[in-house]
Simulated assay, not measured.
Amino acid sequence: MKKMVVVMMIMMVMVMVSEASMIEQTCKETPDFNLCVSLLDSDPRGSSADTSGLALILVDKIKGLATKTLKEINSLYKKRPELKQALDECSRRYKTILKADVPEAIEAISKGVPKFGEDGVIDAGVEAAVCEGEFKGKSPLTSLTKSMQKVSNVTRAIVRMLL
């Protein structure tokens, strides 16, 4: 009986090590290892996901960040009405991420056509950069737009592994 318990414990440890190593191995191939590990470890699906699953988790992170940024944009309309024009452009950009880029990436990765998934992920980073540029250096969204660019770059690297 003791041997069986010990064997079971060893097997559980081996599974946990292999799960962690999948995330770590995958993240080593991205431009930001620490961000990648942090994002994937924060999602319970990460521990059992294959590369496609890890990519989909990160696309969900892009979606969540875009949603958060849109909420911030909406609150800035009240606080900073002088930025209406730039905020309007950013709102359009982040809505594009949510309505076009994210669904395109999810569908493409899910259907095994990662090239189109890569396109959606790249575009999310581009949309964030264009939004940031609308403020001419005085953006109240810099932290969020830079985060979107970083998450997009990490996600792109993982999607490229599927090509």
Rank of each mutant, 00 (worst) to 15 (best):
M4D: 13
V5F: 06
V6Y: 03
V7G: 00
M12G: 15
M14G: 05
M14A: 15
M16H: 03
V17Y: 12
V17P: 00
S18P: 01
A20K: 10
S21Y: 07
M22Q: 13
T26E: 11
C27V: 08
P31S: 03
D32Q: 12
V37C: 06
S38R: 12
L39N: 04
S42L: 06
P44F: 12
G46K: 02
S47I: 04
S48N: 06
A49K: 08
S52C: 04
S52N: 14
G53A: 07
L58Q: 03
V59M: 04
K63M: 08
G64D: 13
A66G: 11
T67S: 14
T67P: 05
K68M: 10
T69D: 05
T69E: 05
K71W: 00
E72M: 15
I73C: 09
N74C: 00
K84L: 11
L87E: 04
R93W: 07
Y94P: 01
I97D: 02
L98H: 05
L98V: 09
A100E: 15
V102C: 03
V102P: 00
E104H: 02
E107V: 09
A108R: 03
A108Y: 00
A108T: 01
A108L: 06
I109F: 01
P114T: 09
K115A: 15
F116M: 11
G117A: 05
G117T: 07
V121T: 11
D123P: 00
G125Y: 01
G125N: 01
G125H: 01
G125D: 01
E127K: 01
V130A: 14
C131L: 08
E132I: 02
S139W: 05
L144T: 04
L144W: 12
K146Q: 12
K146E: 13
M148Y: 02
V151M: 07
V154S: 02
A157M: 07
I158V: 14
R160T: 09
M161V: 01
M161K: 15
M161T: 08
L162I: 08
